[in-house]
Computed example of a mutant assay.
Amino acid sequence: MPSSQDGPWLDDAAGRLIRPYTVSGGRTKPSTALDLLSMVMATGSAPQSHMGPEHTLALGLCDGPTSVAEIAAHLRLPAVVTKVLLSDLVDCGAITAKAPRFHAHSSDRSLLEAVLDGLRRRL
């Protein structure tokens, strides 16, 4: 029985009724190199070709710089499917993507403190 808040595509017993690979058209490799920490942001131009509802939802989440991981969490889709959707949006010019910037040492204390601070603000 579908839960009323989840809509018709989720079922309490069966889970997601549309499998994630159908959302990406069966594709498992994005055309744009995206990391979970890559930041994406809408350009303001609308996609020229028809996009699916998941593309529209993803684009709506890109008003400000947002990480690929955060978009995947909001869409409740696997990261690889989200990367395929976002790469479609990059290809059509609807969003831009920037690779994550790391300091010389990825275990730098200031980076770890910034991550911890961000997590505390979210909770």
Rank of each mutant, 00 (worst) to 15 (best):
D12K: 09
G7D: 07
L61A: 11
S24E: 03
A69V: 05
T66M: 11
S49Q: 12
L61E: 09
P53F: 07
D11H: 15
S67C: 08
A69Q: 11
W9M: 09
L34I: 06
S24V: 05
G60M: 09
A69K: 09
L10Y: 13
G15E: 01
E70A: 13
R19N: 12
D6W: 00
C62M: 07
P53A: 11
A42Q: 09
S38C: 05
A14T: 10
L17E: 04
Y21S: 11
S24H: 04
D6R: 11
L10H: 14
A46S: 15
E54N: 08
A46K: 13
Q5W: 10
V68A: 02
L57Q: 14
S67E: 13
R27I: 01
T66A: 10
G44A: 05
D63K: 14
D35Q: 02
L59Y: 01
D63S: 14
T43Q: 04
A13F: 07
I18T: 11
I18Q: 06
T66H: 07
S49L: 12
G60D: 12
T56R: 06
L34A: 05
R27L: 05
G64P: 01
G7N: 06
P30E: 00
A69E: 10
R27H: 08
G25E: 03
T32G: 03
P53D: 15
G15A: 01
V68Q: 01
A13H: 06
A13E: 10
R16Q: 10
T22G: 02
A33N: 00
M41Q: 15
A69G: 08
L59I: 03
G44K: 05
V23T: 03
G7Q: 05
M51C: 12
P20C: 04
L61M: 13
H55W: 07
G64Y: 11
P53V: 13
R16A: 11
H50E: 10
S45L: 13
A42M: 07
M41H: 13
D63H: 14
L10T: 10
P47A: 06
S24C: 06
E54W: 07
A33L: 00
T43G: 05
P8D: 05
P47L: 05
A13G: 02
D63F: 09
M51L: 12
S38N: 02
L10E: 11
R27M: 01
L59Q: 01
L37N: 04
V23F: 02
T22D: 13
T43M: 03
D6I: 00
R16K: 06
Q5A: 13
R19G: 12
R16G: 03
Q5R: 13
S31R: 00
H55R: 04
P47C: 07
S3P: 06
